[in-house]
Design a protein around this nucleic acid. Structure first.
Lengths: 154, 154
DNA sequence: CCCCCTTTGACCATTCCTGACCTTGCCTTA
DNA sequence: TAAGGCAAGGTCAGGAATGGTCAAAGGGGG
């Protein structure tokens, strides 16, 4: 049930939860030791699961006393933030951008896992077979569905 | 009662039953091995027998640790009619047809007035400025939003 | 015989994991 | 205080493990 990367991701998120969402600090080498993997695997996890698009901020320093600090982007109101993100979706939205957006909204509890999955499924269905403008259609669909969800809950 | 596709379909449905309807996870290559067929046959079965319209959600991931997850969308009987209506939406949907559809759905209390109005607004917003394929986009948007609403209520 | 559903296979795309090599920062010591 | 050493973390490219797509061939019922 999951790759090494998934487990490391879960481990870090657990740490964040235990720290009430405040930023945590860790050592790359130590974490790699915990999971018995090469240190660069940690970078892979950070790059793919804790990107800015997904709502995380990662800073680090090299050299003696080096560290990696992971925090979440601060938002006053998640709903407001979500609306802004929606506004920022341009005319086009790639699959990756959609995944990042949905992951972020899920992490921030704007939508739940099931809704995210469903939206992915619907977009999948509506875009297969479409030749051109897949990204444009995807942007439209995601905007429509998210707006609908958020307005319904307002 | 006969084709390979039918057997694979039955096999997957059996797995779902045994798992009490909770989502199951499988490996495309392994399943193909079980039935001694090419992996893409699995995709065929998924596409033809486990579509959203039929009440299933399929998500997958490629690469190492890849998987295919199949879950059920819960649709109550009340919504079954609506789902059929949805299936009847063709590739295109004029504004007039959309209005008729929303009116019917409102009459049958599948959605309420506010939701109908909201959907109209969103469709309006997403289609203004679009030159070609407005009806196609409208069909897509309405299908997407209705599916979302119906599943949320399941 | 024709049409539609099935089946196959060649080719493609994505994700993960590792290891070699690079950069940065601090500390010790001549 | 300059040089060298040690202690972090960063980059990148490659290989392996999966799943996806699409067009063409196959086959069975009307």
């Amino acid at each position: 049930m999951g790759t090494l990367a998934d487990h490391i991701e879960a481990y870090i998120k657990q740490m964040l939860r235990e720290n009430q969402g405040r930023a945590i600090e860790l050592s790359r080498a130590q974490l790699a030791d915990v999971f018995a993997c090469v240190p660069s695997q940690i970078n892979y996890v950070l790059a793919t699961r804790f990107s800015l698009e997904r709502g995380y901020i990662v800073e680090s320093r090299r050299g003696g006393g080096g560290y990696i600090r992971i925090g979440r982007v601060q938002v006053k109101d998640v709903r407001q933030d979500a609306l802004e993100l929606l506004g920022q979706i341009g005319r086009r939205l790639t699959e990756r951008e959609m995944d990042d957006l949905l992951a972020r909204l899920t992490d921030f509890r704007v939508i739940n896992r099931r809704e995210a999955q469903l939206m992915r499924g619907i977009v999948q269905q509506e875009t297969t077979g479409v030749e051109e403008g897949k990204d444009v259609l995807r942007a439209s669909l995601i905007r429509a569905m998210l707006l609908l969800i958020m307005e319904q809950r307002a």
